[in-house]
Nucleic acid binder design. Structure first.
Lengths: 207, 207
DNA sequence: TTACGATGTATGCGGTGTTCACATTAAGGT
DNA sequence: ACCTTAATGTGAACACCGCATACATCGTAA
């Protein structure tokens, strides 16, 4: 990996910047994530990161994209290929847990508008979107997966934010998990009760 | 209202700062919201706002609290006292529309952790929380209102964020409204199908 | 009238993003 | 081996920012 210290060239400054940014994010929150602090931590001059990131936003976007990839791994680790409501709920719990364990990172991932110029970031988000859609497709074969996966994602995403903002009980992991499971179960119970024709509103949503 | 220009004292600098902050937020996004810019726009020295706001966070919290109050009015305007699923869905649509019409303000309202020291901000959020709970209580008399209102809020809040992040179709207001209505209907259909005893998972959520 | 508290000003410090000219180095063709 | 070249890191500089501190001004009430 990176060069030994003392050399003029760093070796892998881009990776070092991302690592430093993640550390600063955990230590001081998103307020402490400054380009200069990243450079200091990487043991490099203040302007060196500009060789690897166009500006601060590019650095932040790269961190966010990394977060998206880790979130995807975290969800996959909860269950390799969910196909039942219970397994879907387990993935939802993992989603909220991810947000609670890395609050600053999660906020960075969704704080600013997802600018279309960051190819890396957009790609990572659509990857998650399609992952969720795949789960929904397997779990609810009769319903429009696009619309329902959007609903599921919105519910879980909202739960994560409300937990982050202290609106919900986060005292124990069990309390969080119970809340998330109850919400998800309420949702998929509806879908199961609806016949495909009754579920017509889903079909028009994307039309 | 405020004094004529030219006088040493402004007259109502606090209100002027809030107004300037809102303008800057709409023009340049949350990045442009600096205390110095606010002071400039209010036609006052850079440090004058400190007589009315302890620091930048206090100013931002005041703006957020204002946003919460306006959101509450916006929801109330959608329907004075919702008590049916359709009326609840109308309020949900209003929630998402509010976020899409004032994206920067909405992000400020939920971007940072709701610090418990800002009495104004915390009070405003709990007001909205209880408003939603009241709706749910009237609409679903048989279910635990705390848990279900949390679920409803999470779903709507998540929908708002996904729309803001460009993950959903926001081309026309009708598309947005249709998506939100479909999601909300799916949720409350589940709750209606569940008997109070079957809905037991909701009861334990807040316990 | 005069003292005082509230409000606004002037100045300065340290931190930040960003640009630009320059220094150093690795890599590759001759 | 040498020299060119592009990539990479440095340093100084500019404008902006949050914030603290000392000072100026003004309404008000004793």
């Amino acid at each position: 990996m990176s060069q030994a210290s003392g050399t003029y060239h760093h070796g892998d400054l881009r990776a070092a910047c991302l690592r430093a940014a993640r550390e600063l994010l955990e230590e001081d929150g998103s307020a402490g994530l400054s380009l200069r602090a990243v450079a200091r931590r990487a043991g490099v001059s203040a302007t060196a990161p500009y060789r690897h990131f166009a500006d601060r936003d590019a650095l932040v976007s790269a961190v966010a994209a990394q977060g998206y990839r880790e979130l995807a791994e975290h969800l996959a680790a909860a269950h390799p290929s969910p196909s039942t409501p219970d397994e879907l709920a387990a993935v939802a719990v993992a989603y909220v847990r991810f947000a609670l364990e890395r609050p600053a990172l999660f906020r960075v991932m969704f704080a600013e508008p997802c600018d279309p110029d960051s190819e890396e970031r957009v790609g990572a988000t659509t990857a998650i979107s399609e992952y969720v859609r795949g789960i929904v497709r397997r779990t609810f074969p009769g319903v429009d997966p696009d619309a329902l996966s959007t609903t599921v994602w919105a519910l879980v995403h909202g739960l994560a934010f409300l937990h982050l903002d202290g609106k919900l009980d986060t005292s124990t992991p069990e309390a969080v998990a119970g809340q998330v499971r109850a919400a998800v179960h309420a949702l998929f119970t509806a879908s199961a009760a609806l016949s495909p024709t009754t579920a017509a509103p889903y079909v028009r949503a994307e039309a």
